[in-house]
Nucleic acid binder design. Structure first.
Lengths: 369, 369
DNA sequence: TTGAAAGCGCTAACAA
DNA sequence: TTGTTAGCGCTTTCAA
């Protein structure tokens, strides 16, 4: 074993789970085992028989659909409460040609920054879905590999989908449209005929940028991420609109897209400072995070030597001092509305094609004059 | 509108989605709407009829179970390929009293640090689950509110569960055991009769700590998180075992548990330095992250003035210089093995009660002498 | 107000 | 090798 910068592998890390669970591996593990045996459940037929009534009546009592005598209803409800009976949603679904599942599509290779957003969306989605007795089924897509999504579709496991993110030319959207499956996307897509729920990035970014300019910042730079993501396009647009509207206030303006990796950002911060910009606007929390780290490392004072703002706030930025001026959204609401829309749409209710959510501009110390 | 440290709310942020989707809100949005109409799908009966054979035969051709003539089989396969027919897993499940779903239980209030771990687990789980034509159903639990889990259970929507995390006295574990549902946990629990897949935190932490001591560190401090989490207990144990085994090398040793919030950590770092410790061992990535930030802010040199190691490595620590000495695990493998175990267990195959995964110790610059 | 019967799309004895 | 029949657990006409 050596020490220092050398990585020491204590135990080998290479076996795949197929081999892992082979004889050798199992032998080396603790020996005690467990074995499962089924226990059987009570059905609607059992309830009907016990009460001396028909399955239909029981069904009616539970679902509340159709006429039924108040007394009969009470007998059924009391009995099932006592026996702790709960109907099988799967069987109900089969009879109604529904699954009571909705598919949640998210990237398989998400990183530290997207995950909290998705997770908050999920909280909102889950809240309204479970309220309608729907559950969420995960399908992960890897870049352009939509085979997992395709599996869920052809297996008829869900009634509709919610996409957590969209690309400019999104293969999931195409697949879903070809198969004529109901879906909504969180985010925006140029694709027509897609139900979209999004923050109003254009307005939000325009507003924040305008505020900065009106505060007196004359030289401003934007560092943006992957221009293949729709959200980055719209943020860029908002920034540009503000610049145009306030052009009398602007002396210099720089825009760098596709710059969301650390080394590029480090380089850009240097360049931007050389150019004499007063403020760096970061297109998202991750970019901002790297910019802030770069400034910290180099001892660049914020807001003294450079002002910083972000078009997206997240926990990543939470522990920086001074606090960061940023746009704030509510992903949980986004998810909740998306799910409600999908549910309505699946019920045949006409829904709007595009819904914009509200935002907040939080001006903090990082842009103080 | 004011500027500076004041938070400015541009658009109101308070309406709940119920209201949001009410008349007023809808009116203010873009008017174009969409409406969904069902299209119907082909079934096994259609295939059978078209081919002039029975449903059973078709079923046999597809499932591969039971004897069937090679030619008949080919006719069926060709026809369904042509018609792009795929059997309904839901109907199949009903007939077999299975759902082909497995429940994925994760905390609803997860933060930046747990999420990447869960997500990687999910990648592994998903890989083996979909290989067996199973899908993942999300159930979120909020602290001790397990009502979402209870819903999924009583609706009979899954065949088994995987828990992404366990608490010392976990209400999910209790609920699942009471209902006699198959499940496995990722992580460890003192609870007997629970199938557990975990990293061997005790050994790993013992090994890393020993290495540090053998390198010549004599005064060492541990900052640990919530002692209600099993994983934190086991990490503490590993640390203590190493201290005991190497007591001839140790001059001073401090252990602080339940210290995973920023302000506590800031205070502890000060205290630990006053005590003259040479090395801070952080129980997880989040704690380490805060320690590193504190050191950066205060200009404390690493490893010159203090050495830092972490019992858990994650992307959070990626961009620090020097690189951080840490234990490295493979969450995807953890998930994959967990899922395989669950599947076996549900099939009635005896499985080991406890599986330990391997780890790596990566010695980097942050602990260099 | 209640029930009988058919059916959702598939599997699994049991026969042939 | 193939088909008949009876479910899986629920809903939904249609009659009574």
């Amino acid at each position: 074993m050596t020490v220092g910068f050398v990585s020491v592998t204590h135990t080998i890390f290479v076996k795949k789970y197929q081999e892992r669970l082979g004889e050798d591996f199992m032998e080396s593990q603790q020996m005690e085992t467990m074995q499962y045996t089924e226990t059987d459940k009570i059905t609607i037929a059992d309830v009907a028989e016990a009460l001396g009534i028909s399955k239909t009546t029981v069904s009616r009592a539970i679902s509340g659909k159709g006429r039924i005598g108040a007394e009969t209803r009470k007998r059924v409800m009391d009995y099932i409460a006592e026996k702790n009976y709960h109907p099988s949603v799967v069987a109900k679904g089969l009879a109604q040609s529904k699954t009571y599942n909705i598919g949640w599509v998210m990237p398989g290779q998400s990183g530290m920054t997207d995950l909290p957003f998705f997770h908050r969306c999920l909280n909102g989605i889950n809240e309204v879905a479970s309220g309608a007795d729907y559950d969420l089924l995960i399908s992960m897509v890897y870049d352009n590999d939509v085979s997992q999504l395709a599996r869920v579709i052809r297996n008829h496991k869900v009634d509709g989908f919610i996409l957590g993110r969209t690309l400019v030319d999104d293969p999931c959207v195409r697949l879903l449209q070809e198969n004529d499956i109901p879906f909504v996307v969180i985010g925006s897509t140029p694709n027509e005929n897609v139900i979209q729920i999004d923050n109003d990035h254009v307005s939000a970014c325009r507003e924040l940028t305008s505020v900065l300019l009106m505060k007196g910042i004359q030289k401003i730079a934007l560092i943006g991420g992957d221009s293949n993501h729709v959200v980055n396009q719209t943020r860029k647009q908002g920034f540009e609109e503000a610049i145009r509207e306030c052009r009398h206030l602007v002396r210099d303006c720089w825009i760098y897209m596709d710059s969301d990796n650390e080394s590029t950002i480090d380089r850009l911060v240097d360049e931007i400072r050389r150019n004499g910009a007063e403020c760096i606007v970061c297109m998202d929390d991750k970019i901002c995070y790297h910019v802030l780290n770069k400034c910290n490392r180099d001892g660049i004072q914020i807001p003294g030597q450079i002002k910083i703002a972000s078009f997206y706030y997240s926990d990543l930025l939470k522990s920086f001092k001074p606090a960061i001026t940023a746009l704030e959204y509510d992903p949980k609401e986004l998810g909740a509305v998306a799910c409600k829309m999908l549910l309505d749409y699946m019920d045949g209710i006409p829904v709007k094609k595009k819904i914009f959510m509200n935002h907040q501009i939080a001006l903090k110390g990082s842009t103080q004059l």
